[in-house]
């Protein structure tokens, strides 16, 4: 059986990469005296996966890990033992028996920004009306246009910034800072991102959990 853990990443720990987070969790399991099961096959890997890779620098109030622990300890036991061995900035929020492989369909973000009064309201109104909000995404592979409007919804102004729901689909997703850039483009006014926190991951219908077959470590 697998355990599903929900945890938060805050402070300096938000600068850990996705892979580093996986390794931090694995070491915490070992310090807690728990063994993460290994997959079958020629190159066994720990059966642990983190859903929806978090960008480096983004804090999170809702990360989701699925893990199989040798001996099948109860989820609450796993959480309790893990709490004592995690480094500062990573905190277990809840645990339960995994109902199946999680399929994250969207993530909600809180984006703190510096912007003149009224700019965000105007930007959100323009965004709703636009229907298309292209921004450039640069990567080592090159530059491409991403239509943020395809993914972003439910944008609302909050204290110090805005919140946005971003869909995660097979074709891709939008990054919260890209939403801020789209708002900047639509208003022509400067919107500077000061910090991003993922506040929730929404999970769709889950594939039934099985203990058969290997599962690669999600890196």
């Amino acid at each position: 059986m697998k355990t599903e853990l929900r945890f938060a990443v805050a402070g300096r720990a938000r600068f850990l990469s996705h892979l580093e987070c996986v390794d931090v969790l694995l070491a915490a399991f070992r310090r807690a005296g728990m063994t993460v099961a290994l997959s079958e096959g020629m190159r066994p890997k720990p059966v642990i996966s983190l859903a929806a890779a978090r960008a480096v620098g983004v804090a999170s109030e809702d990360e989701l890990a699925t893990v199989r622990v040798v001996g099948d300890p109860a989820p609450e036991v796993v959480a309790d033992r893990l709490k004592a061995t995690l480094p500062n900035g990573i905190e277990i929020r809840s645990s339960r028996l995994s109902p199946g492989t999680p399929r994250v369909v969207s993530a909600r973000y809180r984006v703190l920004v510096d912007a003149a009064p009224g700019v965000l309201d105007a930007g959100i109104a323009a965004f709703s009306a636009a229907g298309c909000a292209p921004v450039e995404r640069r990567s080592p592979k090159g530059t491409k246009l991403v239509d943020v409007a395809q993914y972003a919804s439910a944008i609302e102004v909050v204290d110090g910034g805005f919140e946005v729901e971003v869909a995660i689909v097979q074709e891709g997703t939008a990054r919260p800072e890209e939403v801020a850039r789209a708002l900047t483009a639509l208003t022509g006014a400067e919107i500077t991102v000061r910090g991003i926190t993922r506040t929730a991951l929404r999970v769709g219908q889950q594939v039934a959990a099985t203990d058969e077959g290997p599962e690669e470590r999600d890196t």
Partner: peptide, 16 residues
């Protein structure tokens, strides 16, 4: 500056 450099975990400390 950590938001713009490679491997920011080199500079954050906080390890076990």
């Amino acid at each position: 500056v950590l938001a713009e450099v490679q491997r920011p975990s080199r500079y954050i400390g906080g390890e076990v």
